[in-house]
Amino acid sequence: MQAPLLSVRDLEVSFQIGGEEVPVVRDLSFDVEYGETLGIVGESGCGKSMTALAIMGLVPNPPGRISKGNILLEGVDITKASEKELQSLRGNDVSMVFQEPMTSLNPVFTVGEQIAETARTHFGLSRKEARNKAIEILRLVGIPSPEKRVDDYPHQLSGGMRQRVMIAISLICEPKLLIADEPTTALDVTVQAQIFDLFRELQEKTKTAIILITHDIGVVAEMADRVMVMYAGRNIENGPATDFIRAPQHPYTRGLISCIPTLQADPPDDPDALFEIPGVVPSAVELAKPGCAFAPRCQNVMDRCRVEFPPSAQIENNRSVSCWLAQEETV
């Protein structure tokens, strides 16, 4: 079997908070195969974005750093690579689309320049060649009359158009891995659908693997081949997307799926129709306590959960879960 494109092992990302080093991502291990789409799901603050930045080698330092583990991209360890090596990987082999299209583009350069400079940096293209390539990729991401738009500044484009420009920037060097961090959160619902169609279309053409970070279960169900659920900096469930929707194992995953409103429900008359997981995500500092991080919010909590953290256990082919209950049920 071919080695995976990306292999993350025992990753820990820590931040200096009030003089103490607090891990925000811990014991995180997962693989991404060539050409597949991995969805990473979880609430805000569970470490999704930090995981993405770690893969890019862009954890803000200080105060953050990768304190343990390895990230292997085609055998190259990103945690040990020099800044120069990282620069040649970023935007070239692995690229990223950020959450906020309104602020992620530099306001004082044309979008064409911002796309073209990536190609000039990595492929050594001339200005003219890079510009033509920028026009070509703008057409590919569905921007009308790209030969005109190439000279526009970001403020002249709508949010959806800007996100297309971001996608163009991330795809111009045909990366092997594209990380999309909540790429549609800031956009209208209709535009969201267009952007996801675009991702699918482009993935078919370029065979790029995608890590799609989102808190929208619907998006994951539609887009991802495999899903990883994160809670409090850890991978708590990992498996094929179809299984994840059909038979979630971890109580947290079940909770997330129950949170999706159904068409039959009528919230104004029936407030219980909108399910919520009680409580909030614990802060990173609280997590130093032993036991399962989800225990205080879990409906099925057992005594064991409060004292001992459940290790990730394989429950089926390609499926693993970190939950004492789920493990008991499958045994």
């Binding site: 890019m56 862009l58 800044e83 990282l86 620069q87 040649s88 990987l89 970023r90 935007g91 070239n92 690229s95 990223m96 950020f98 906020e100 602020t103 992620s104 583009l105 530099n106 306001p107 400079e117 990536t118 940096t121 990595h122 971001m166 920037i169 991330s170």
Partner: peptide, 17 residues
């Protein structure tokens, strides 16, 4: 600290650029 600087770094540009 701004987002577009993070984008510029994510594109693999040199520190100087």
């Amino acid at each position: 600290e701004s987002d577009y600087i993070r984008t510029a770094r994510a594109k693999g540009l040199s520190r100087f650029l």
